[in-house]
């Protein structure tokens, strides 16, 4: 059964005010187009979870979509701080819940695996443990040594961008696979956005590359360039220049509002956004191909 729909339909059906949202992707494949659509549809009081909130969550917070953020590294990767998020947290306007990367993805792993909690070895650094009551300790029943435990993270909806997907939602990713699979399995609903919608045959030609099976997917949206200014391995490069520029754009609220007016509210969808970026940017972000050697699955 095809689950193809527009991104606007998918957001409207599966992202509700107050939901816990996990827009997946560690640097790679961050679904910016979905974040922009959520802003355009005016969602409120969301709880936004991501290991690295990145610019996507800063934009959503600045647009007034969120009441709380769950994270493990709140910076502009390679550039510096996320100014608005930092200010919102410093002034206490935004609730937050903090983990280490390992804590954050362990929570997803627990959620994805149907576990009541997940153990981790001690780290000797106990301040975060004291600050966040979700960190607990239990004794290993075999050795009697204390381990750290965390509860599962169970988002209402995960949004996952992929290179290719069939109409039912069998999705393939290559390059950095971060926490996409775990986020999808942990969540009640899954929206997949894809650079390309392919025939089921293409998926079946390389099943080892499929990380999300169709039966956990609710909506499939064809959204080329969904990840910009993040990237899609083999399709377009990370727009490092934009990440550097964001540091200036986000110096003032007004700067961000102007950005949102022009690039989020001012465009209908991702296609219009991508056209608006212009040829020079397209050129700058284009990637030379580097093909893998095909593998032989054998005819049985």
């Amino acid at each position: 059964m095809t689950k193809l729909c527009t991104l606007s339909e998918a957001i409207s059906q599966f992202v509700h005010d107050g939901d816990l949202v996990y827009a997946a992707g560690f640097t790679h494949l961050i679904p910016f187009a979905a974040g922009h659509e959520i802003i355009r549809q005016g969602r409120k009081n969301l709880i936004l979870a991501r290991a690295t909130p990145d610019i996507i969550y800063e934009q959503m917070v600045a647009a007034g979509c969120a009441r709380k953020i769950i994270f493990s590294y709140m910076g502009n990767p390679g550039v510096g701080s996320l100014r608005i998020l930092r200010e919102e947290v410093e002034t206490g306007r935004l609730e937050w819940e903090e983990y280490s990367h390992f804590g954050m993805i362990s929570r997803l792993q627990a959620g994805a695996s149907g576990l009541p909690f997940i153990p981790m070895n001690q780290t000797a650094a106990t301040d975060l443990e004291s600050a966040n009551p979700n960190y607990r300790r239990v004794r290993d029943p075999y050795t009697n040594i204390e381990v750290i435990v965390l509860p599962p993270l169970l988002p209402d909806v995960a949004i996952v961008h992929v290179q290719r997907c069939d109409a039912e939602g069998n999705a393939q990713i290559w390059g950095i696979i971060g926490e996409q699979k775990e986020a999808a399995f942990a969540s009640k609903h899954v929206i997949v956005t894809a650079e390309e919608i392919v025939e089921e045959e293409v998926i079946r030609s390389d099943p080892n590359r499929t990380i999300i099976p169709a039966f956990i997917v609710d909506a499939v949206c064809h959204v080329p360039y969904c990840a910009h200014p993040s990237y899609t391995q083999g399709y377009y490069d990370r727009d490092n220049l934009f990440y550097l520029n964001w540091d200036k754009i986000s110096e003032t609220r007004q700067g961000i509002q102007q950005y949102l007016e022009e690039w989020v509210y001012g465009v209908k969808d991702r296609q219009e956004y991508w056209q608006k970026l212009g040829k020079e940017t397209h050129q700058r972000l284009s990637v030379k191909p580097r093909w893998s050697v095909p593998v032989n699955y054998g005819e049985y």
């Binding site: 290991a51 696979i177 926490e179 990370r238 550097l244």
Partner: peptide, 24 residues
């Protein structure tokens, strides 16, 4: 030179890519 910890240049030509849960 990668600007971010997840730059695509790290992947192309590497020996293995795994999930974050696996790397940790």
């Amino acid at each position: 030179l990668p600007l971010s910890i997840g730059d695509p240049t790290l992947v192309s030509g590497s020996t293995l890519v795994c999930s974050m849960y696996e790397v940790f």
